[in-house]
């Protein structure tokens, strides 16, 4: 019973413990190993003057992670260096190996920069150290600003285009079709009506006699046919499809009976004449 409570107590104590850095410093050496700059780093304050690296310079960073209260060495579970360019919002995260004595080392050789270094312009990179541990509060240390030679501009991200508003959808209408000039229209109207002369003239010559057209046997059929044509004409002018089908259906019945009667009487007459 005692053990778990002490464990919990211990855990809560440990949880409260915060981390800090000891002996943190950097140095910059040129290609021929001459030391250009070397200074200690503070956990609380960012270095006032920014660092500058040339194409062949090497930056070395060393630190040791300890507990703030008792100075015990701590191996954190995660340690990262973050390079951040405020102007372009580009950032690079570089994991840092920390030994079990809490000592961390990082080397940035500008002759072959790591892929985690973000694309850079003229603005400095803000370099910070992020340390995470399961049992300690996380630690974030702003180390310094770093000037490095400008890289190529970053390549366009493949999905960049989908993060912008699309152009509004528009519909292009074809220009309104025009009727031809009135003269052409009128002359072709006349031309289209001209063929009516043909039957009117020729029927005058060859019209077969229709003596029984107005006989009560035939007239209803002719009338219903004419009504049908009238109905279709009315459809063109005014009616809707449903109405036409309804009226046509109603009109079809008398037409069928009238037609049957009329044609039967004509047939009888024809056969009768033929027999004579």
């Amino acid at each position: 019973m005692l053990l778990p409570t002490t464990l919990i107590l211990l855990a809560s104590l440990v949880q409260a413990a915060t981390l800090t850095l000891k002996n943190s410093r950097f140095n910059i050496t040129s290609k021929d190993a001459t030391e250009l700059r070397a200074e200690p780093l503070s956990v609380t304050e960012k270095l006032s003057s920014p660092l500058k690296l040339d194409r062949t310079d090497i930056l070395r960073l060393t630190f040791q992670v300890v507990e703030k209260d008792n100075g015990n060495n701590v191996q954190p579970h995660q340690a990262f260096l973050r390079f951040y360019d405020e102007t372009t919002d580009e950032e690079g995260i570089q994991p840092v190996r920390v030994s079990n004595t809490g000592k961390g080392k990082f080397e940035l050789n500008m002759a072959k920069p790591p892929t985690s270094l973000p694309p850079t312009g003229s603005a400095p990179l803000r370099v910070s150290l992020l340390i995470g541990s399961f049992v300690h509060s996380p630690l974030k240390v702003e180390l310094f600003d770093l000037h490095v030679p400008a890289s190529h501009p970053p390549a366009q991200h493949t999905e960049e285009a989908s993060y912008h508003p699309l152009p509004p959808l528009g519909h292009t209408f074809r220009p309104e079709q025009k009727l031809p000039p009135r003269i052409i229209s009128a002359s072709f109207t006349g031309l289209a009506l001209a063929p009516w002369l043909v039957p009117l003239v020729l029927w005058g010559k060859v019209a077969p006699s229709t003596p029984r057209l107005f006989s009560p046997h035939i007239l209803p059929f002719v009338t219903t046919l004419a009504l049908f044509e009238g109905l279709l004409f009315w459809y063109w002018i005014d009616l809707r499809l449903g109405q036409v089908l309804l009226y046509g259906g109603i009109l079809a019945l008398p037409t069928v009976f009238a037609g049957k009667h009329a044609l039967a009487s004509i047939g009888e007459r024809r056969l009768g004449l033929a027999r004579k």
Binding site: F188, A192, A194, P195, V198, P208
Partner: peptide, 19 residues
């Protein structure tokens, strides 16, 4: 004559369609 009557109508239709 009845067929001539129909023929003249056919002629009319043909001319109308051509125009």
């Amino acid at each position: 004559d009845r067929l001539k009557f129909i023929d003249s109508f056919l002629l009319f239709i043909m001319l109308s369609g051509v125009i």
